[in-house]
Amino acid sequence: MRLEYFDMIDKVESFDPANKRITARSTVPATSPVFEGHFPGHPLVPGVLLTETMAQASGYLLLGLNGLTQMPFLMMVDKARFRTFVEPNAVLDVSAELVHEGSGYAATKAKIAIAGKPICDAELRFRLMPFPADMRTLMQARIAAIGLSPEAA
């Protein structure tokens, strides 16, 4: 993870198009400017960045399922729960599943665990829109870097 660059997903562990599910792994860095403020002397990953991590896993799931035909943009966070603090060097198991595919939007459920222990979960919704200029290329490079093989990219 590179918190300050919003690179939240290190590696896709599994992508299951049939069950519309993805799992990924990310390691919290030992140091980050984020920890200088959150909090001085007591570094914790902010809940908003855990939400972003779940959103990115969901986003990659949607990109994988739609073969990079539309870009998912986070539009709603529902029922977010943060159950345990996340400290530097933690290894996060991130998972997301599609729960509803609407017309122009999609809903997922996502969660993060550490060594099997639930850390946080949320229901997320995404607006699916045409790719802004060059973003598809950027996403293609990103999903290759994290080891995702979309259905028909």
């Binding site: 539009m75 509803h100 595919e101 609407g102 939007y105 809903a107």
Partner: peptide, 16 residues
């Protein structure tokens, strides 16, 4: 879109 999600779920459909 929020309304569409609730309608989709309530009626078991997909508003186009």
């Amino acid at each position: 879109l929020d309304i569409a999600f609730a309608i989709d779920k309530a009626f078991g459909i997909k508003l186009p």
